[in-house]
Design a binder for these strands. Structure first.
Length: 204
DNA sequence: ACCGGGATGTTCT
DNA sequence: GAACATCCCGGTG
């Protein structure tokens, strides 16, 4: 068993379309709560009409344009929070949205904050759900994931990313829906979105 | 399992 | 006003 170690700054200093699949199977910690990342989406700044940073910096997306390795949190549909890790060189507005986790630690706290949730597998299944389960809000926007200044960290516990992650277009986006910038652990029941193929099945 | 509608508020045209 | 990187509930099959 390997002790979990926070990802170094250099991990984030890359194109999110390259780094995002490597985020799979890393562990997102928030205080005593934690979950394994099993679904992510990359957002590619000025090249990407679906990105919040596509039209340049605003008060909302300022964190995206800051240093890599910080947490960008925004409000979605007026009532949910969604959490991203900032990637690439400062000033480019690149990020990876964390869309789903397998709950690992602090399940009692997660259940308490997700009273509408019936099954544990749905605790962190979706970007709005996982922030609720980990108690991440807009107050956490700008947190440093490398130093853990607000007890939010992404760490490597020795579990490698999948050799062949599932790939698809991003969920819930209108523009650039055809870009294959969503990656997930194939067959994992905690992945969000419609059930595609059953675990282990092959395209036919 | 899959669909449709409502909740709710910030951002931008 | 419209669009939105969503979720939950209650229908139907």
């Amino acid at each position: 068993m390997t002790a979990a170690r926070a990802l170094p700054r250099r991990f984030y200093l890359r194109d999110p379309r390259v780094a995002a699949p490597e985020l799979l199977n890393k562990v997102l910690f928030r205080g005593s709560r934690a979950g394994r990342i099993v679904e992510v989406e990359a957002y590619a700044g000025s090249e990407d009409p679906a990105s919040h940073s596509f039209r340049g910096q605003t008060p909302r997306n300022a964190t995206m344009f800051g240093p890599p390795g910080r947490l960008y949190v925004y409000r979605s549909y007026g009532m949910h929070w969604c959490a991203n890790a900032v990637f690439g060189e400062e000033g480019f507005g690149l990020a990876v949205l964390v869309r789903a986790l397998v709950p690992l630690h602090g399940l009692e706290l997660m259940r308490a904050d997700r009273t509408a949730c019936r099954r544990d597998r749905d605790l962190c299944r979706g970007p709005g759900r996982l922030t609720q389960a980990l108690a991440i809000t807009g107050a956490d926007d700008g947190a440093d994931l490398v130093t853990g200044d607000r007890s939010i960290v992404i760490a490597d516990d020795g579990t490698p990313p999948p050799n062949e992650p599932g790939v698809s277009g991003r969920i819930g986006v209108g523009a650039a829906a055809d870009q294959p910038w969503r990656w997930y652990v194939a067959g994992q029941v905690c992945v969000s979105g419609p059930r595609l193929t059953p675990p282990g099945s092959v395209l036919r």
